[in-house]
Structure formats: structure tokens, C-alpha cells
Design a protein around this nucleic acid. Structure first.
Length: 424
RNA sequence: GGACAGGUGGGUGAGUGGCUGAAACCAGCGGUUUGCUAAACCGCCGUACGCGUAACAGCGUACCGAGGGUUCGAAUCCCUCCCUGUCCGCCA
């Protein structure tokens, strides 16, 4: 959601921001609607002010036993006018809100320009990507065992689901525990166990609705299944006025995520890369406007620590204007090296949303001693997706006999288990 | 699923048609007093929008869960919906 006042102040800058997203200029239309709305509102308020005054007079006249008919007739007329003006104001306001909330967030100055992911800017590479010959993809490694069973999942739920058993099920759980412990014990995040079903309002707040309803699963009785814990965690501060001194807030949760993957038909159909349901550790920060840029770097570092501790090779890219998400002002993706595929694949996405979500949620803060409120800034990042982390671990630590070494960091979570074989 | 009871400012909580944007208390802010702390006393203290201003101020409008309705006038009366709580039933 954009601030109409910003558009009033500098319509050219706003249109430039839309232009960076590849959109047509829109400031003129927004300002015209804004003008309409304010005119109707001003007129309406004048009529209502007169009505209130007249009503008070009627009360006085009647108390003194007089005849108030003339004033009552006037009020009847005013009501007529008020109705029309109210309708005009409402129409203009709705049109303006629809327009403003349909536009994506403006991107930061240092976000690279570009049409698609090929224009993303690589910032750094960490670790040594395995490139030896004969490396298998994760689904091939366990294809002959029942530890990773796509056929069983298809029987239950259809395509894009998986059943994990035995050591792989436990490994996935271990990854989640490891990450949660890291973020809560070393990075200062507070653990949250949120609802997985949410209402429209929450999804509007974080920007998934109304534009991206097709990407979500809905229940028959009006709930939506969360596509990421970003939704419940961020909306915890919706409609709140927070003390600025208390910020930043840092929340983390390990939850399943549900995505319809509409529009990605045919993409990544094999293996566990793109599922309708997957687990993810999410990081969410709520900050003052001054804190958000630094918090973004910090959050990204927290996610990177997960990959470093697991000994996974990865790179960090800054998403370009054509690849960055709807609500983000700036996004760093962590792409983990998948030896089986011999390429980097997204495993975390860390975004600074600025005040974009805060406006939609009406989430504000107040500096100590000040009267005025300000919108908070919100950030979210995966820290990281455990399904994809599982894939990366399997492919990175595979041995020539088809078994997989357990990374040191995970062994305490697996009862000291060092090797996973297809019989486990 | 059944039966009740409720949704009022940061919190508790009064308020059944005009003098209520809303008592009182708590918290918060400013001050007086004070050896320090504590206490006492005084004052201030909702949000959004519009007009207005150099900026304050000031003026106006709306908001007592949401949306409609009745009325000259609604926190207060009526309708619909949402939410919360309690008890019963069912259930992990």
C-alpha cells in the first residue's frame, strides 16, 4: 500500500518508482481520485456540521416548547445532500484504495534493474561447491528405498507431495530443531507457534491478497492455509501501536507452508524441490524505519549462518526489479548449491518490506515522549526452508556407495547418527 | 452442534436518546514538594481524515466490534454479520 501523501508531494518520483517495476505511470490518476475524494469529504463535512448544529437547536426549541418545524425541514434537505456526498466520497475512496493497494512496493535505489532472474546481482559465494563426477540428485539417491516415497504420497494426496520415513523423516525434523535452536539461542529470535489457518485480513496485511489468491489453498469454511509463517508472524503486530524503544521485535517459527503452485505446472515436477506442502523456519523482524536496512543485513547473516554450520555451499544474490516480490523493497536470496543438479537453487529469501505491509496492517510505533505515530518497517526471511535444506544435505554429503554422511551440526539431533543408508 | 453472556480510549471499567469523544481508577507524560527512594498534590494524556498554518495553534467531521436501519438527533433503540467468554455435548 502506498502513501497518497508521498504521491502528492512528488508524483514524478512515484511514477519513476512504478517505471522501475515496468509499470505505466499512475500518479495522475491517483491524484485525480484523491482530489475527488477530498472535495466530496470537505463538502460532506460542511453539511454534517450544519446538521449537527440544527439538531442541537431543535433540542433547545423543543425543550422551550417552541415549534421546530422549519429547522426540521432544513435537516431533511441536508440529509439528502449528505447521502449523495457520502456516496461520492465512498466511491472515490474505494477506487483510490484499490489503485494504491494494487501497486507493488517501490524498490530501493540499489536494487539492480532487470527483467528476470538472469539480471540478479551476485553479491558473494561461500563454501566449495561439489563438482565431482557421478553425483546423484536427492530423489535418485533414495529412489530404491521407501525413505523418500513419492508413490505413497501420490496415493494419499496426488502430485507434489512426499512421504518421508525413518532416517530421512528424522533428518528433516533434526534440521528444523537445529535451525530453531540457532535462531532462538544465538540470534535473539523469540519462538512462536502460530495458527496455520488464517483469515482474509491477515493475508491482505502481508500482501498475498487480493492479487495472489490463486497461489493459496483455502478451506471450505473461509480460512486460508498459510503459504509461509511470514503471514501469522508479521500480522501479530497488525493494528498495534508499539513503543519504539521496544523495537526491533524478532520472531521465528517452524511451520508447514502450503502453496498451490498454480502457474508452475511442469516446473520441478520431480523430487522434493517444489511441493504443495513443505516445512520452513521463518524469521520476521518488526523495526523502526531507521533500523530496517541494518536489520535486513543482520537477518540475512542469520540465515547464512544456518548454511555455514551445515557446511553447505551457497551464494547470495540481490534480486533485480523484475524478480523481486510484490511487497518487497529489497530482497536477498540465498541459493544453495545442489551437487546433483550442478546449480544453485533458492533456499532462503530475505526481504525488507519497509512500511508497505505496515500500512496495510495499520501497524505503528510511537517514539518515547512523542505524540505522533509512525508506521513500522517489517522484514521476513527464511531461515531456512527445511525441505530444501534436506535436499542440499543429501546431495552435498552423498558418498559413492549411495549413503549420506550426517553433517556434524546435526548429529546431536539424530542421536549421534553419522551415516544414513537406504536401509535406515 | 446446543444454551447463555459479552465486545467502550494503552489497561480496568461507568454510561439506555440531546449537557458524552465519552465518568472514575490504573498506566504514561509534565510540574510542585522532597536529603535519596517512596508517598502526596496539581496539570496533561485516544485515533484517523479534512480545512487551516511557515510551523504550531485553531476549526470541523468520523470513530464506543463491522455493516445497515429508526430518529431532527444514536455508544445508548432495531436488524444482519463477525469476534470473545462461560456451561453442556462431541473430540486430539
Amino acid at each position: 500500500m502506498h502513501d497518497i501523501r508521498w504521491i502528492r508531494e512528488d508524483p514524478e518520483a512515484f511514477d519513476r518508482a512504478l517505471g522501475r517495476r515496468g509499470l505505466e505511470p499512475g500518479a495522475a490518476r491517483a491524484l485525480a481520485l484523491d482530489e475527488q475524494r477530498r472535495q466530496a469529504q470537505t463538502d460532506l463535512q460542511a453539511v454534517l456540521a450544519r446538521r449537527n448544529e440544527a439538531s442541537r437547536q431543535i433540542g433547545q426549541i423543543k425543550r422551550q416548547g417552541g415549534d421546530a418545524q422549519a429547522v426540521m425541514d432544513e435537516v431533511a434537505q441536508l440529509k439528502d445532500q449528505a447521502g449523495k456526498l457520502e456516496e461520492a466520497e465512498r466511491e472515490a475512496a474505494h477506487a483510490l484504495t484499490d489503485l494504491l493497494s494494487g501497486w507493488p512496493n517501490a524498490v530501493d535505489d540499489d536494487v539492480p534493474d532487470g527483467a528476470d532472474e538472469t539480471a540478479n546481482q551476485e553479491l558473494r559465494r561461500v563454501g566449495d561447491p561439489r563438482q565431482d563426477n557421478g553425483l546423484a540428485e536427492h530423489d535418485a539417491l533414495f529412489g530404491d528405498s521407501d525413505l523418500m516415497d513419492f508413490a505413497a504420497a501420490a496415493k494419499l494426496s496426488g502430485a507434489r507431495f512426499v512421504v518421508l520415513r525413518g532416517a530421512l523423516a528424522r533428518l528433516e525434523r533434526a534440521l528444523g530443531q537445529f535451525m530453531m535452536d540457532l535462531h532462538t539461542q544465538e540470534h535473539g529470535y523469540r519462538e512462536v507457534a502460530p495458527p496455520l489457518l488464517v483469515r482474509d485480513r491477515a493475508l491482505y496485511g502481508t500482501g498475498q491478497l487480493p492479487k495472489f489468491a490463486d497461489d493459496l489453498f483455502a478451506t471450505a469454511d473461509g480460512y486460508w492455509m498459510i503459504p509461509t509463517a511470514e503471514v501469522p508472524l508479521t500480522n501479530l503486530v497488525a493494528d498495534e501501536i508499539l513503543a519504539a524503544d521496544d523495537l526491533p521485535f524478532r520472531f521465528t517459527a517452524l511451520t508447514p507452508c502450503f502453496r498451490s503452485e498454480a502457474g508452475s505446472a511442469g516446473k520441478d515436477t520431480r523430487g522434493m524441490i517444489r511441493q504443495h506442502q513443505f516445512n520452513k523456519v521463518e524469521l520476521v523482524s518488526v523495526t523502526t524505519p531507521e533500523q530496517s536496512a541494518e536489520e535486513h543485513e543482520r537477518m540475512t547473516a542469520c540465515a547464512e549462518t544456518v548454511l555455514k554450520r551445515l557446511g553447505l555451499a551457497y551464494r547470495v544474490v540481490s534480486l533485480c526489479t523484475g524478480d523481486i516480490g510484490f511487497g518487497a523493497r529489497k530482497t536477498y536470496d540465498l541459493e544453495v548449491w545442489l551437487p546433483g543438479q550442478q546449480r544453485y537453487r533458492e533456499i532462503s529469501s530475505c526481504s525488507n518490506c519497509g512500511d508497505f505491509q505496515a500500512r496495510r496492517m495499520n501497524a505503528r510505533c510511537r517514539p518515547k515522549g512523542e505524540k505522533a505515530t509512525r508506521f513500522v518497517h517489517t522484514l521476513n526471511g527464511s531461515g531456512v526452508a527445511t525441505g530444501r535444506a534436506l535436499i542440499a544435505v543429501l546431495e552435498t554429503y552423498q558418498q559413492s556407495d549411495g549413503s549420506v554422511l550426517v553433517p556434524e551440526a546435526l548429529r546431536p539431533y539424530l542421536g549421534g547418527l553419522e551415516v544414513i543408508t537406504t536401509h535406515a
